[in-house]
Design a protein around this nucleic acid. Sequence first.
DNA 1: TCTTAGATGTGA
DNA 2: CACATCTAAGAT
Length: 205
Amino acid sequence: MTMLPRAFFQRDPLTCARELVGCELVWNSCAGLIVETEAYTALGDEAAHTFARPSARAFVAAHQAGAAYVYFNYGMYWLFNVLVKGGPEDGFVLIRALQPTRGLPAMRRRRFSNPAAPGVRPKPPEALCSGPGKLTIALGIGGQHHGADLCVRPSTAFHGPADPAIRRLSDVRIGITKSAHFPWRFLAADNPFISAKPTAAAAGC
DNA sequence: TCTTAGATGTGA
DNA sequence: CACATCTAAGAT
């Protein structure tokens, strides 16, 4: 797999979110297969930050496709997105879960020996990156990466393409109340590293 | 396997 | 004041 070029992110957010499933996220000495994503679109999506936040719209205007959009949620967790821009519609892809492939000891250390999260007991590798808040802890992603260009250094980038044999599902997004019926969550089928099992609404895609 | 409370910061 | 979350604990 090679580093995904900027052109990958200059397309429809749903296409990007779907195709990122099966690609690899490389983050310094750590890496993981992307097994779960969600798409957010700049138009008609009330759950997207761009809907209600002028600061998010300013971010889209000021950055290129492939920029990291990192924000702090629930007073505790950083969430990691990539900016999609320049295609039919702008938006974001939220990276929701990884199947770790490299740097597992470092991930385990950050997740389970973290002074900021005392009392969290070690869990199996399936739980290392099985959620958007968990994977930023495991990889050490934080506010310092907000705005970073992910199309420059292979050591901090997405790599692809995905195995053409991969089977994917689309399902409703998780943890939102607005525009909640859009089937814009994308999953690797039958993968134990995802954050939550597919619902009855899931379908192959 | 499920539901629950509680921890916590920020943009608008 | 809602929020793109997570964990341990307790009920089923």
